[in-house]
Design a protein around this nucleic acid. Structure first.
Length: 496
RNA sequence: GGCCCCAUCGUCUAGAGGCCUAGGACGCGGCCCUCUCAAGGCCGAAACGGGGAUUCGAAUUCCCCUGGGGCCA
């Protein structure tokens, strides 16, 4: 039997990392079994659903590398793949249930139901719909209709039904007592289907064999199983995955800051890092390895090994993993990393206008000497803002520490001349000049290097000094040394 | 309120009765390396929510409690 699964987002916002995580595991499970993955758009909330969001969700899924075999954009044999285009099906299937007396119209008004609920609360017993419309006669119905009451459709939970057993692929066996269920509504009085019901119709209609979804749907499962039974359909196998949590251990939501996949994309997180990180939230291979290619994940993933408890989305670990993938990406395709960095610098307004080949080559050189420091494109500015602005910002602590020593001015002036007259301004030439400088002052190179770094970059951290001097070029380095000498003469920042 | 799910270091987790003085990773601290930072190497702090029960022996099984989450209302 071919495995068929689905991911069914509502196009009411951008793809969320929680949703992406769920989509990814559905996809991973499906690909592991060489199955078919269906994308269904649950756009019944017409007030909040938009085409733009739908498009963006498809884009973001593709960006992550999650592809589908059937969906609203590619079609397929079991369409349509948008719920709004399937209303006729829900209506037809509802009538099937009514015809079988598995569902019935309920004319109770919200006020009447509220009264029932209040009474239950007063008597301190759990509220369940009384079932007063269960056995309405034709006359009763005619009477209600005459009052222009618009009925909802309720599913008739079979009396004396045996325990409903859910064999969950992740949670194991979970039992539900039918007596705890009341006759639930499947179609609203305005004729629109409820989530649970539409889901059953869609999943069966789309020949879904395995439902992989969030654990918030576990409680819906017995109701859905009952509906499958009433239809005479075999229910799909189910797997309920935990929900992703924010740092406060609450379900991840927009309150937790950046949660949209495109926010992460915009920050320069790589899809392969994100996807690898997703895999690690809820599943670990037996050998404890953490870095995996997607094909490896597809091969090794087993849904039975999924964790049952909710995982906190830890950006720090994601960032670390992104660094791992950045290095790999740089080794394989430096242009890709340069593109990311250029994109970041443009968004930051550091690069403006057309990025010429020359400008790009400069960024590429900066990126190359950044090495492992580049975990995210933004690290280019964390460690190398001075590459993109001649107006160096001096770190006060750095000035304090390295410009207060006696002889710094003299030493910087000396080195300025040494670099000005260095026969060749290559890495070797620069290193030689500095080494000679240290010798003539009778100090170790570090004594010279630290103040020079502060003088040229304004900070104490960053790429190797020789490299950075070479990339900056003689002219700019000399200008910065001149300026720094003025600063060092005062020994502190000019009070500005 | 009823029902259901979950529970190991700050975080992601390994662990399916003895291999656990509870392992790894991120993060954190220290040392080494080193022109700084990062990377790398070494070291360290850091967890089985509580209580019963079963067993020669429990992180691992069962029960209760607590805490968190969800569905229905």
């Amino acid at each position: 039997m071919t495995v068929r699964t689905r991911y069914a987002p509502s196009p009411t916002g951008f793809l969320h990392v929680g949703g992406a995580w769920m989509a990814f595991f559905n996809w991973l499970f499906t690909r592991h079994y060489r199955g078919q993955f269906v994308l269904r758009i649950e756009d019944t909330d017409r007030t909040r659903s938009t085409e733009e969001y739908e498009t963006s969700i498809l884009e973001d899924l593709r960006w992550l590398g999650v592809d589908w075999d059937e969906g609203p954009d590619v079609g397929g044999p079991y369409g349509p793949y948008r719920q709004t285009e399937r209303s006729r099906l829900y209506h037809e299937q509802a009538q099937v249930l009514v015809a079988r007396s598995a569902a019935y119209p309920c004319y109770c008004t919200p006020e009447e139901l509220e009264a029932e609920r209040a009474r239950a609360a007063a008597e301190r017993r759990p509220y369940r719909y009384s079932g007063r419309c269960r056995e309405l006669s034709a006359t009763d119905r005619a009477l209600f209709e005459a009052q222009e009451r618009r009925p909802t459709l309720r599913f008739r939970v079979p009396a004396a039904h045996p325990t409903i057993v859910v064999e969950d692929l992740v949670l194991g066996r979970v039992e539900f007592q039918p007596g705890d269920l009341d006759d639930f509504i499947i179609v609203r009085s305005d004729g629109t289907p409820l989530y649970n019901f539409a889901n059953v119709v869609d999943d069966h209609g789309m020949r879904i064999t395995h439902i992989v979804r969030g654990s918030e749907h576990l409680s819906n499962t017995p109701r859905q199983f009952l509906m499958y039974q009433a239809f005479g359909w075999e229910h799909p196998k189910v797997a309920h995955l935990p929900v992703l949590l924010g740092v406060d251990r609450k379900k991840l939501s927009k309150r937790h800051g950046d949660t949209a996949v495109r926010d992460y994309a915009a920050q320069g997180f790589l899809p392969e890092a994100l996807v690898n990180f997703f895999a690690l939230m809820g599943w670990y291979p037996e050998d404890g390895r953490e870095v995996f290619t997607v094909p490896e994940l597809v091969e090794r993933f087993r849904i039975e090994e999924m964790g049952k408890s909710g995982a906190v989305f830890d950006v720090q670990k994601l960032t670390w993993l992104n660094g791992v993938y950045m290095q790999q990406a740089y080794r394989r395709d430096p242009d890709r990393v340069v593109d990311l960095v250029v994109g970041y610098l443009r968004r930051q307004g550091v690069l403006t206008g057309e990025v010429t080949a020359e400008r790009r080559a400069y960024v590429a050189r900066v990126a190359s000497i950044m090495g492992e420091r580049l975990r995210l494109p933004s690290d280019i500015l964390v460690y190398g803002d001075f590459f993109f602005s001649d107006d160096v910002t001096y770190d006060p602590q750095a000035v304090q520490k390295y410009f207060n020593t006696d002889g710094v001015v003299k030493m910087l002036a000396y080195m300025r001349q040494a670099l000005a007259s260095a026969p060749d301004f290559t890495l070797a030439g620069i290193e030689e000049a500095i080494t000679r400088g240290a010798e003539s002052f009778g100090v170790s190179r570090g004594v010279i290097i630290h103040p020079m770094r502060v003088a040229i970059t304004g900070k104490t951290v960053g790429p190797g000094l020789f490299e950075l001097i070479e990339v900056l070029g003689r002219e700019r380095v000399l200008a910065r040394l001149d300026k720094a000498i003025d600063v060092a003469k005062v020994g502190r920042l000019p009070s500005a």
